[in-house]
Amino acid sequence: MNIMIIGGTSGIGWALAEHYLRDGHNVMVCGRDLQRLTSDHHYPMLSCTQLDIADNVALAKAIEVFAEESLDLLIVSAGFYFNDRHQTLDAATTLRMLQTNVSGLNTAFELAAEHMLSKKNGHLVAISSVAGLLKDYPGASLYSACKRSVLSLCETYRIALAPFSIAVTAIVPGYVDTEKLRQLNDGDASHKPFILTEEKAVEYIVDAIHRRLAISIFPWQMRWLIKLFNYLPSQLLRLRK
C-alpha cells in the first residue's frame, strides 16, 4: 500500500509508520518538525515531507505529489492540545486548535478523497480521543469539542464515500504512553487510568484499519468510564473545571 501519515514524526503517528514500513509498505510521513525523527532504522520505503496541516497550500501539494502513483491509506494523526481548564485561551491558540484539529483534518480528507474517488478505492483514518466522547457541559474544554468534531467529520465522510468503496475510520484511544503525554505530566504519565503502551495502541489501530471499522474505541475500560462520566448531572460536571 501507499500510505500517507500526517502528524507522523512522533508518538502514535510514527509508531504506525514504523509498523507499516516493517511490513513493506510505502509510507510518506508528514510533520512540522522532521528533526523529531530520531529512529536509528533506515527504511528504503520511507519518504518525509515537512508541512503544517493548517497550511492548505503545502497540504494540497504534498497529497498531489504522493497520490500521483496511488494513495491507498491516509492517516491523520496531527493534533494540537491546550488545557483550557487550567489556562486561559488566547485568540492565537484558539485559532491554532481549530486549524489543526478541525479544518486541517477536513481539508486533508477532502483532498485525499478527490484522488480516491477517481479509483473508487481507499481508506481515510483520523486519530481522535475519548475526550471527543464527552458530552458538552458547562466548562467543557475546546479540545473536547474539537475531538467531537473529528468524530462527526469521520461519520460524514464515511456516509458520503461508502458508495464508492472508500472506508473511513475514526480511532478513539484513551491514554497512550507517548512522549507528549509524559511531557504534559512532568515526565511520568503512569498514573493515568488504563494507560496503554504505544505498541498496544498500534495493535488496536492496525486491527481497526485492517477490518475497515467505522470507529474503534479503546481500551474498553475507558469507553465505559466515559459513559459513566456522561451520566453525571451538569452541576457536578461544572465543578470539574
Rank of each mutant, 00 (worst) to 15 (best):
C146S: 08
A113D: 04
N106K: 07
A92S: 14
L161K: 12
L95D: 12
L111W: 00
T88I: 15
L153F: 04
G139L: 01
I159N: 14
I159H: 15
L134Q: 14
C154D: 02
N121I: 00
R96I: 00
S118K: 15
T107V: 08
T100D: 00
K119A: 12
F109H: 05
K147G: 09
L117V: 04
D136F: 08
G104N: 02
M97G: 13
H115S: 12
I127G: 08
R158E: 11
E155D: 14
A92I: 10
A112L: 09
T88H: 12
I159S: 14
A92N: 07
K135S: 13
V130F: 06
G104Q: 01
Q99M: 11
F82C: 05
V150M: 13
V130K: 00
V102I: 15
D90W: 13
L153N: 04
Y157C: 07
Y137N: 07
A108V: 11
T94A: 02
A160T: 15
G132F: 01
V150P: 06
C154V: 10
S103W: 08
T94E: 04
L153A: 06
L105H: 05
L142N: 01
N83H: 13
V125M: 09
L151G: 13
L105W: 04
E114D: 12
H123C: 14
D84R: 04
D84K: 08
S141V: 11
L142I: 13
G139F: 03
L98T: 07
R148P: 05
F82T: 03
S152Y: 03
L133G: 02
G132Y: 00
C154S: 14
M97H: 03
L117C: 06
H115Q: 14
L98Q: 08
K120S: 14
A108E: 07
I159R: 15
A126S: 13
R85P: 00
A126D: 00
I159L: 15
G139W: 03
T93D: 00
R158N: 10
L95G: 01
L161F: 12
E114K: 15
N101I: 04
S129T: 12
S128F: 05
L151P: 00
K119S: 08
Y81W: 13
N83L: 06
T93W: 03
A140N: 13
S128V: 08
S144K: 05
N121C: 07
L95S: 09
L124H: 10
T156H: 14
V102H: 01
S118L: 13
H86Q: 15
L105G: 04
T88F: 11
T100K: 03
S141E: 09
T88V: 15
L134C: 11
P138G: 04
A145L: 10
R85Y: 02
D84V: 07
G132L: 01
E114V: 14
S103C: 01
A92C: 02
K119W: 02
R96V: 00
N83Q: 09
T94K: 06
T107Q: 12
N106Q: 12
D84E: 05
A112E: 05
R158G: 12
D84G: 07
S141W: 02
V125R: 06
H86G: 00
L142C: 02
I159M: 14
A160N: 14
H86D: 12
L95N: 07
Y143R: 05
V150E: 11
T156Q: 13
S129W: 10
L111G: 01
L117F: 09
